[in-house]
Design a protein around this nucleic acid. Structure first.
Length: 422
RNA sequence: GUGGAUGUAGCUCAGGUGGUUAGAGUACCAGAUUGUGGCUCUGGGGGCCGUGGGUUCAAGUCCCAUCAUCCACCCCA
């Protein structure tokens, strides 16, 4: 059926698109202030990039990628996330041999073959930033502060910021041992998933939401219990920088993010009122990723935010959105003979930079007025035989209904003055 | 991938136990004395009742399948 969109996709209609633009514009502004520069990468990549970069044991790669073979028999995939492509570009264009860190931001569509539900789509849109080449804890803090700053400017409230450190690979190994020792006696009480996780990836038992698992996990050793001295220092420094900025956070030793490449700092922002898909943004440090992608050892930090979920949270809280675009002027012809003059006038107005439109449905004067009212225009210019004889036009202010007659010559400039005057 | 709910005009929804030409509100269009919006009144256009099967003399109404949406699990943005 050609009149239905693919499952899990959405059309962003004009009214909604205005809200998207508001979110995106706010993001771009903040990126400029924090000195992150835009990067645009392809919407599809070699499948191998995601297998290596995201991790081939993650759900994303195992069962959620849009993968296909192109006509040259190459396996390519629609990007399921933005970090791996940015890292690839960083390497491919030798950005790592320039001044570090390289601070980049991106916006765009991502694709995941999930079952759609509230706040979860197959094509969704992310805003993200990555800072490559520095392992300084102030950078982790800057990024977390930046997200909260961004949400604040959108008028989002009722958010929870959770932070954690998942340590380096050595810490993880230690934790894995500790966890398995703690969990094995409880194995019989865990859910089926967690029984499997116990041997393969016991970290994930920590944020299982099953009641029994949750109860057991509360007392389990966390990532924080197993941090090596270096990782502990790094995390303390991140917290200190956040404290200096007055950023409010909760340390959550059970926060384990799904992607394999995270090391050290991990963070996530939750909204309490958008349904079960409550995460509206998250990120962390990934010091092993660049190397895993075939580059030199280079650290990185980044985050990604979901636009759809941000919008959901904003609507849930009745957040402010700026008014949509509307024309400055609508040109109305009082009788059919004036239509061509109205057309000329319309283009004269536009040439002066005014947003202008007219009726294209052959409507009566009354209907044209009605239609003009619905466009939300500020002024209506009425052109009729009487006015034309005098070389003038009637200008009606739609906000108060007042009407004056002005000469056609220089009309656009006059209207500009009237708009500027308010 | 698993489970639950729903699917009637553009939109929001009515349509007891199956029975003639499927309704409302809203939106859209046109009128309400001769060149003017927002309020009010009147009229009008618009529906493969998601789709495909089945039961029945008869199905929007019952059964099955399928597709889609929503909700939860899972996962994550």
């Amino acid at each position: 059926m050609i009149t239905t969109r693919p499952r899990g996709t959405a059309d962003i209609l004009p009214e909604e698109a205005g809200r998207w633009r508001f979110v995106e514009d706010t993001f771009r502004r903040i990126c400029r202030e924090y000195n992150y520069r835009e990067i645009r990468t392809p919407v599809f990549e070699h499948t191998e990039l995601f297998e290596r970069g995201v991790g081939d044991t993650t759900d994303i790669v195992e069962k959620e990628m849009y993968t296909f073979r192109d006509r040259g028999d190459r396996s390519v995939s629609l990007r399921p996330e933005g970090t791996a492509p940015v890292v690839r570009a960083y390497l491919e264009s030798n950005l790592h041999s320039g001044p570090q860190p390289v601070k980049l931001y991106y916006t765009g569509a991502m694709f995941r073959y999930d079952k759609p539900q509230a706040g979860r789509y197959r094509q969704f849109h992310q805003l993200g930033v990555e800072a490559l080449g520095s392992s300084h804890p102030a950078l982790d803090a800057e990024m977390i502060a930046m997200i909260m700053d961004f949400y604040g400017r959108l008028g989002l409230k009722g958010l929870e910021l959770h932070i954690n450190s998942v340590g380096c690979p050595r810490c993880r190994l230690a934790l894995k041992d500790e966890l398995q020792n703690y969990l094995r006696p409880h194995a019989g009480e865990l859910c089926i998933n967690c029984k499997n996780r116990l041997e393969r990836n016991p970290l994930r038992v920590l944020d299982c939401k099953e009641k029994n698992c949750d109860r057991i996990a509360v007392n389990a050793p966390t990532t924080l219990d197993c941090l090596c001295p270096d990782c502990g220092d790094h995390f303390d420094a991140v917290k200190e920088y956040l404290d200096r900025l007055g950023v409010v956070y909760q340390v959550d030793g059970r926060l384990v993010r799904g992607l394999d490449y995270y090391t050290h700092t991990a963070f996530e922002v939750m909204s309490t009122d958008i349904g079960s898909q409550s995460s509206i943004g998250g990120g962390g440090r990934y010091n092993g990723l660049v190397e895993a992608c075939g580059g030199p050892p280079a650290p990185g930090v980044g985050f990604a935010l979901g636009i759809e979920r941000i919008l959901l949270a904003m609507k849930g809280r009745g957040a402010y959105f700026p008014a949509g675009d509307r024309p400055d002027v609508f040109v109305v012809s009082a009788d059919a003979e004036c239509e061509k003059d109205a057309f000329d006038l319309l283009f004269a107005l536009r040439k002066c930079g005014l947003g202008a439109d007219m009726d294209y449905m052959g409507r009566s004067l009354k209907a044209q007025m009605k239609f003009a009212g619905k466009t939300g225009c500020r002024f209506v210019v009425i052109l009729g035989g009487d006015e034309l004889k005098r070389g003038s036009a009637s200008v009606k202010d739609m906000t108060n209904g007042s009407q004056i007659e002005l000469p056609l010559k220089g009309l656009a400039e006059e209207i500009k003055k009237l708009i500027g005057g308010n």
